[in-house]
Design a binder for these strands. Structure first.
Lengths: 155, 155
DNA sequence: GACAGCCAACCACAATTGTAGTAGCTTCAA
DNA sequence: TTGAAGCTACTACAATTGTGGTTGGCTGTC
């Protein structure tokens, strides 16, 4: 059950993972250059972080081009985001609803957004039920869907 | 416009602010004892953090009982939570919707929750509009309610 | 085959965070 | 009035995080 190794990422590490996710894979130099110049650390800083990420198992070397190592993410963006959300939820007493309520309260989420999301979800839900029924005999319902099977690229 | 000083809190600091918020106000000892024993640091650890929080302007001394200082929160729980949410949203490219979508995707938020929230909100919204109309001339709605300040004796 | 330009490996170091000990006041109760 | 108990104000220190320098090894190019 591909149990992803829940790694904990610091802010800078996240920043750099962001670049890796965006690139798919790349050398330290490429990763560094992928970062917005505003907050672009020195080459060696990025290198250090990449190494640390490697130790944590968040990225790995996939090959070597010239004398440069090419890295790619092991931890998916989704998994990392989930980790963050869980942490935040913990602070909120584990209640996603309180979180949402606050989002609304501060106007970061409008009633409109919610309605929108709701209808989208209702559709998805219905869809899933159908699929579920169609494959009744097969594997039990995937409680935890894997990465990617949705269109709507994360940017 | 009571511009709250956006302080940044670390995990432990948040934990301790949690205790302060729960207490309303209290001595270091009370704050320490308020923490769940599982993760209850030594008295002096809590003291150190309280001092740091004081420097950051997140708490302040309100009075002295016996020879013990009584602290209370300056930063509201809501403000702190907001800070956290903003940070998380930043990672999510500033989109609360993506965040919600992921909450749903991982089953942490159900369609039912959303519907529920939606209707609650619709009511609130309507309510606010009414209030707003009724007090057109007066001060704008209080966006950020004060935290409950309770007195709690130092032993 | 020597050199310029890159890269990998290490190393260093300051800032922040978590964790706690100690010395010496204050108080309250006997 | 004297001690014990509790508190404050400092101090210490290890772990984590952010940041980047240095050295020496490849590589492709005249």
């Amino acid at each position: 059950m591909a149990k992803e190794k829940q790694v904990k990422l610091t802010r800078l590490e996240l920043e750099i993972m962001g670049a890796v996710w965006a690139l798919g894979s790349g050398s330290v130099r490429e990763i560094q250059e992928q970062l917005p110049e505003r907050k672009r650390p020195a080459y060696t800083t990025v290198q250090t972080i990449i190494y640390r990420l490697e130790e944590k198992g968040a990225v790995r070397r996939v090959k070597k081009i010239g004398n440069a190592h090419i890295f790619e993410a092991v931890v998916t963006r989704k998994a990392a985001h989930n980790r963050l959300i869980d942490e935040l939820l913990n602070v909120f007493g584990g209640s996603p609803r309180l979180l949402m309520a606050q989002l609304v309260e501060t106007g970061q989420l409008t009633l409109h957004d919610i309605r929108d999301l709701e209808s989208t979800l209702a559709k998805l839900e219905a869809d899933r039920i159908v699929k579920l029924r169609d494959s009744r005999q097969k594997k039990p319902a995937p409680g935890d869907r894997k990465e990617g099977k949705r269109q709507g690229g994360a940017r």
